[in-house]
Amino acid sequence: MNTPLAQAAAIRSRKGGKPIAMLTAYDYPTARTLDEAGVDILLVGDSLGMVVLGYPDTTHVTLAHMLHHGEAVARAAKRALVVVDLPINTYDTPEQALDTARKLVAAGAGAVKLEGGCDKEAHIAAITAAGIPVMGHIGLLPQNVLKEGGYKMKGKTDAEIAQLHADAQAVAHAGAFSTVIECTRADTARSITEACPIPTIGIGSGKNCCDGEVAVISDLVGAFPWFVPAFVQPRAHIAESITEAAQAWMRDVQGE
């Protein structure tokens, strides 16, 4: 049986091998399309706060939001591993982290993801001990954006590099099957990947510097044209197509 634990183990086994492809999904039709396309992992990211719900950052996302969207994606996935983010303030202690993870699994998540390294080692260990696969997230932590005063590239100083290496090792030691490395200097991301025993999945951390890549689906297909990260190369322009279709339909309806 292709259980979430087996799926996570299969991803773990690809360390240094075939690159891992992970895309975000927040709704049934997108998730079904990506699942049928063969994407390895569907991430129900708290990035939905911006690209779906219109918030300025992820700090406004609640557990109710993640449960709602996680359920929709889980209904669609037949082969991909579904990973759901633990939203801010839902994993302040190991006990709370496990409780939140269990709620997400009950909603259909195959695995969960949380932000942090050394400071979250006990939290990850508590979840994995309960048989729930965990994906780590180090480097730039979007849930800390208000504390840090913006989105800042990581891994530029010796102290930051040392801390990131320690974070990656802590996440692996706690039992995570992989970890995201976000917006970290390419040379730092590469050195972490070489030293880390579990797969690393990069976003904004250089090309071919990690064991895989993740992208926000809205960025990839041009569905959110109001802001596109500098490191993203859109492969489609969905927003333009929607505008053109709507305008063509209005002309037809209005007899123009």
Rank of each mutant, 00 (worst) to 15 (best):
M1Y: 12
M1N: 10
T3R: 07
Q7R: 13
I11W: 00
A25K: 12
Y26S: 06
P29Y: 05
T30A: 13
R32S: 11
T33Y: 14
D35T: 09
E36L: 08
E36Y: 02
V44W: 11
D46L: 03
M50N: 11
G54F: 00
Y55Q: 13
T62G: 04
A64G: 06
L67F: 03
H68N: 00
A77V: 06
R79G: 00
A80N: 03
V82P: 01
V82H: 07
V83F: 08
V84R: 10
P87C: 01
T90N: 13
D92L: 12
P94V: 02
P94S: 09
D99T: 14
T100K: 05
T100V: 03
R102T: 05
K103N: 01
A107V: 13
A109W: 15
G110I: 09
K113D: 00
E115D: 08
G117M: 05
A122R: 09
I127S: 04
I127D: 04
A130D: 14
G131L: 08
V134N: 04
H137R: 01
N144E: 13
N144G: 10
L146G: 09
K147H: 04
K147L: 10
E148C: 07
Y151F: 11
T157S: 11
D158G: 11
A159E: 15
A159S: 14
I161V: 07
Q163G: 03
H165K: 14
H165T: 10
H165S: 13
H165V: 07
A166G: 13
Q169E: 14
A170R: 10
V171N: 02
H173F: 00
A174P: 11
G175F: 09
A176L: 03
T179Q: 02
T179E: 04
V180I: 13
I181Y: 12
T188F: 05
S191D: 15
E194G: 09
I198H: 01
K207I: 14
K207D: 09
N208R: 08
C210P: 08
C210E: 03
D211P: 07
G212M: 02
G212S: 12
A215Y: 14
D219C: 09
G222T: 07
A223T: 01
F224R: 05
W226S: 10
A230E: 15
R235G: 03
H237N: 14
I238S: 00
E244M: 11
W249R: 15
D252F: 14
Q254K: 15
